[in-house]
Structures are given as structure tokens and as C-alpha cells.
Design a protein around this nucleic acid. Sequence first.
DNA 1: CGGCCGATCCACT
DNA 2: GTGGATCGGCCGA
Length: 200
Amino acid sequence: MIVLPRSFYIRKDVVAIARELLGKYLFTQFDGRLTGGIITETEAYEGVTDKASHAYGNRYTARTEVMYRIGGTAYVYLCYGVHSLFNIVTNQVNVPHAILIRAIHPVEGIAVMLERRGEKAVTKDFLTGPGKISKALGIHYSHSGTDLTQKPASLNGDGIWIENRGIDPDPEKIRTTRRIGVDYAGEDALLPYRFVLLWE
DNA sequence: CGGCCGATCCACT
DNA sequence: GTGGATCGGCCGA
């Protein structure tokens, strides 16, 4: 039950961190409602040199400014005008690395997550997809910039954080592939920066 | 200021 | 398998 500290996020190898996030627990608490699950799919975005990254070529705008902050900050943006996509900033200040969380296995606050999604029951693909995760966890693009190293001090405090609860995935259960939906990135679309933890 | 487009999802065929 | 939804961000004029 250890909240991941700053030291976890400020390391330089964003691809290694993306892989290590598999099996960690992502939690949110909003309006006194705790929700969360086990991270099962991630993608690394390697900053200024990565054509698939919003920060490619040092692009610095009102939206991407958050990517240049200290590791352990949330970067959330609106995709296709509908979906808030949740990312974790890594590395030091001014190195805009980020990791997209693409799937989790539901654990905590399942009734709340079902309500937010407008679903009646949990199916196999309930939280597979970055847009679905944000909707279920109550994450909105206005949460971009949230400090992920601070767990709320009380039961009615708001926050987003990640815990290590001792799961150490079997390497045999991890698949590595190219990233989804980034064909516009040319040869960088082929990089092996997506990690999937086979669950069940 | 106008126009294009997206790190997606879901309904429908 | 496919196409529409939907709107903020980004870029060029």
C-alpha cells in the first residue's frame, strides 16, 4: 500500500517506467467516492524526439505545458472532442516524457464506475481503452496538472494517485507491441512502446 | 479568424 | 468492419 513517490517518476527511462507501471494500482477520489484498479496496459511517449508525442520538436503550448513539469504530474487532454485521456508525466522538469494509461482491471468502487459509465454490469472490456478509464474514474481534462504523489488526507478529499501493492508481474505475461492510433508518426509508430499485462 | 484533425468509442451492418 | 459524433487545440492567413 505504498503511494508511488516522486523518485519513481523522475527517472530518465520512460519506456522502463511504462513497463513497471503494469500491476500498479491507479486510484481516484472525487466527492468522497473512491475508485480504482490494476494497470494492465500502458504506452510510453518519449518527448521531443518522438513524432507521436504532443511535445515532439519541443512543441510548447497552453495544453502541452503540463508535459514539461516534474515527473509525477497528470497530463490529461481531450481527444476527438469527447474523451479525456489520462497520462503520467515522467522525468525531470523540461523533459516532456509521458505515459498513457490504456487499460485497468477494476478493483475499487465498481458500483460508482458502472454508474459513471452508464453500464449495468462489468464485462471483460469494461475498462480497456483510455477514454473509458477516465469516464469510470471521473477524470476530466480539467484535472491536467494534478500532483499524483499526494493521496488525499481525508475520506472527502479529492485526488489521483498510484500505489504499489506488491504485484510483480510474471515477464511471461507481458506483451510488447507498437502503439495504437499513431500511424501519423511515421517510423516512430513502429517503436515497441506499448505494454500489455495479460490478465486471467 | 477559419479550417482541419485527433494517443477514441459505440452503434450499426 | 465501418463511419459518425463532437469540440478543443493548433496552425496558417
